[in-house]
Amino acid sequence: MKEQISPTMLPIAQFAEKLSVLSPEFTRRFAEFEAQKCRFELLSNLFAVDLKSTPTNLQMELIELQCSDTLKSKYDSVGAAQFPCFLPDTLPQLRAQAAQMLSIVGSTYLCEQLFSSMKMNKTPHRSRLTDEHLHSVLRISSAQSLTPDIDELASKKRCQVSGLDQCASEYIVLFPY
């Protein structure tokens, strides 16, 4: 394939330059993840983690967790990603640890979703979309559950009387079934 593509179509030097600029940026952005590596490994498999390498405040709770056959079977059935939701209240340190680590990934995902939604809504073809409209669209799209209050909406409804009602009754009189 390399032989079939001319250097003008695929400027390798230009790509190499762009990649060399991106490499330190990735290193900088993901340095925090490297520092948190042991915490991520802890959550990836709570039942196989080495107790000596875990923080001391979590060791007793990990021992209690690893000795529970019920929690082990729950872990096997739901998987590592969903298991932190099933950690019992008797393991507050592990629950807090799981919440901290999952919030890193979850908040990043929500931000990416919002930016994607904004990009899809704010296009050149929708030039009349104001910042207020965009704010409303993003608010609705980011709502986890949105249910209308039907009673409140119905109470705000106003009946409008028009001349159509009179016209309709005259039509029926003139043209009965």
Rank of each mutant, 00 (worst) to 15 (best):
K2F: 14
K2E: 06
K2M: 12
E3Q: 11
I5L: 11
P11V: 07
P11G: 06
A16P: 06
A16F: 12
L19S: 08
L19C: 10
S20Q: 05
L22A: 11
S23C: 12
P24F: 06
F26Y: 06
T27Q: 09
R28N: 05
R28G: 02
R29V: 04
R29C: 04
R29E: 04
F30W: 00
A31T: 06
A31G: 04
A31L: 10
E32K: 11
E32G: 12
F33C: 02
E34K: 08
A35W: 00
Q36L: 08
K37T: 01
C38I: 00
F40K: 00
F40R: 02
E41S: 08
L42H: 03
L42N: 01
L42D: 01
L46M: 09
F47L: 04
F47R: 01
A48M: 09
V49R: 03
D50H: 03
S53Q: 13
T54C: 13
P55I: 10
N57P: 01
N57Q: 05
N57K: 14
L62A: 02
L62E: 03
E64G: 09
C67Q: 15
C67D: 10
C67T: 13
D69P: 05
L71I: 00
K74D: 09
D76K: 15
Q82S: 15
Q82G: 12
F86T: 09
F86I: 10
L87W: 05
L87G: 01
L91K: 03
L91P: 00
P92W: 01
A96L: 07
Q97R: 03
Q97Y: 02
A98P: 01
A99T: 04
V105T: 06
V105L: 11
V105P: 01
S107L: 12
T108F: 07
T108G: 05
Y109D: 03
L110Y: 10
L110E: 11
E112P: 02
E112Y: 14
E112A: 15
Q113G: 06
Q113R: 15
L114W: 00
L114N: 01
S116K: 13
S117N: 06
K119Q: 06
M120N: 08
M120I: 08
N121L: 14
T123H: 00
R126T: 05
R126K: 09
L129K: 06
L129F: 04
L134D: 00
L134W: 03
H135L: 14
H135K: 10
H135D: 05
S136C: 15
R139S: 15
I140H: 07
I140A: 15
I140N: 02
S141P: 06
S142Q: 05
S142I: 02
S142T: 01
Q144R: 07
Q144D: 07
S145H: 07
E152V: 05
E152H: 10
A154L: 13
S155C: 15
K157G: 13
R158P: 08
C159P: 12
C159L: 15
V161T: 13
S162Q: 08
G163S: 09
L164Y: 03
L164V: 00
L164K: 07
D165F: 09
D165G: 12
E170H: 13
E170G: 12
E170Q: 13
Y171W: 14
Y171C: 15
V173K: 15
F175T: 07
F175Y: 04
P176C: 00
P176E: 00
